[in-house]
């Protein structure tokens, strides 16, 4: 039974190209599916263009949800990518 977990993250910087690239590369290390939701839209962490299209900017809160066998680890890695990439 795959687990699922989610958390809210306040963005330290705009979710622009470089952080979005880091998110995709971090998500690829895990088997879990990771989605990021913002403003009523949800994007897969496997696609940079969808993440960019969320239009999330610094100070705004996004919701990260991971589903799968390594969901907690995947979630932690994505949160790190979202909060530490300038």
């Amino acid at each position: 039974m795959p687990g699922s977990c989610e958390t809210d993250v306040v963005l330290g910087a705009h979710l622009h190209a470089r952080p979005a690239g880091q998110v995709v590369r971090a998500a690829a290390r895990f088997s879990s599916d990771v989605e990021i939701s913002f403003g009523g839209r949800t994007a897969s962490a496997r696609g940079i263009l969808g993440l960019l299209a969320l239009g999330a900017t610094a100070g705004q809160t996004v919701t990260v949800r991971a589903t799968g066998d390594d969901a907690p680890e995947a979630l932690a890695a994505i949160v790190t990518a979202l909060t530490t990439t300038p």
Binding site: G21, A28, G47
Partner: peptide, 24 residues
């Protein structure tokens, strides 16, 4: 970006084609 994760050719091709659907 998807190639950087070590993805295979089919996955990279599919990711690139998703660009048609990505609104700005």
């Amino acid at each position: 970006v998807i190639a950087a994760t070590g993805a295979d050719l089919d996955t990279v091709v599919a990711a690139a084609r998703e660009a048609w659907d990505a609104r700005k």
